[in-house]
Computed example of a mutant assay.
Amino acid sequence: MSTIFIPNPPAHQLKPNQQILRKRQYAALIFLAGLVCLTFALGAWQLWRANQKQSLIEQITTQQRLPELTWSQGSPPPWRVLLLDGEWLNHAEIMLDQRMLDGKLGYHLITPFRLKDGSIVMINRGWWSPGERMLPPVAQDPPRVTIQPWPRFIELGATPIQGRVFQNLDLGRFAAWAHLPMPIAYGVAQDAPAGIYPLTVDRPLGVARHLAYALSWWLMSALGAYLWWQFYSAARRGYVSKG
């Protein structure tokens, strides 16, 4: 069996249906090349995200190793353990509903704390379930907190506020409800009185996920490049097999 390779004739010598086929082949090649570039760029973006996340984790570790700092005014630094100086605003405490702990439903107690300069910091004092006590313990001692990014939430519609019970920590709705200035920061209490369970600090996830995503995108990019070359080679030549 032998194979005879016949070059493609110039475009002006092709029949109309052959010209249409040629255009479709080139359009498919351009589209596939675009996908190869896109998947390669997405892999590079995930690698950049991994480096960015690793840098953030190192910064958080450095901040949390620093000694405790007393803070009384202005926007507090994130991730560092602070002893806030000011006063609790227990009358404006809210409870975030439907929060789970060890398979039990309860509330997150969010109590505003006013610094010496009047700035408001929202403190998550921990998880609490009514049980035998219908009211949670009142905040009294100056809080030791770790400042964190504002918690994210998705809400399809504005859920009605029931007394002090909110579904999510919506700053605008809280400020309007409590008649207070807009809070400037959110922190998680390091200590809690009996009956309240303090929460762990939410640290960013590690870089392994981003590296896995980058590898997946680059594998798809390599596969796309291989397919592109195969299609390109087939489009550049025609062949007829004879036995």
Rank of each mutant, 00 (worst) to 15 (best):
P149V: 03
L180T: 14
R152Q: 14
L156W: 11
Y197L: 08
V188K: 02
I154V: 15
V145M: 07
P142H: 12
N168W: 11
L169Q: 03
P198D: 05
A176M: 08
M182W: 02
A192S: 08
P198A: 09
D141N: 12
F153Q: 12
T159P: 04
A178C: 11
I161Q: 08
I147S: 01
D170Y: 04
L171W: 07
Y186H: 10
R152H: 13
V145G: 06
G163C: 15
F174H: 07
A194Q: 15
G172F: 13
M182I: 08
F166Q: 08
G163S: 14
W177N: 13
A189M: 06
L180Q: 14
T146K: 02
P181I: 03
L171C: 03
P181F: 04
L171V: 05
A192V: 03
T159L: 05
G163R: 13
V165L: 13
V138M: 01
I147V: 10
T146Y: 01
F166V: 07
R164G: 08
R164A: 11
G157V: 09
F174P: 06
T146H: 01
R144E: 13
G157S: 13
I154M: 12
Q190S: 08
L169F: 05
N168M: 04
Y197W: 11
R164Y: 08
Q140I: 05
I184H: 08
T146C: 04
N168C: 05
F174W: 14
R152T: 14
Q162M: 05
I184Y: 03
Q140L: 04
P160L: 15
W177E: 14
Y186V: 09
Q148K: 03
R164H: 13
F153N: 12
P142F: 09
Q167H: 11
P151N: 04
P151Y: 01
Y197G: 00
G163D: 14
G195Q: 08
A194T: 15
Q162I: 08
Y197E: 12
P181E: 03
E155G: 09
I154L: 15
R152N: 13
I184P: 04
F153C: 09
Q140F: 00
Q148N: 05
E155C: 09
P143K: 02
Y186F: 15
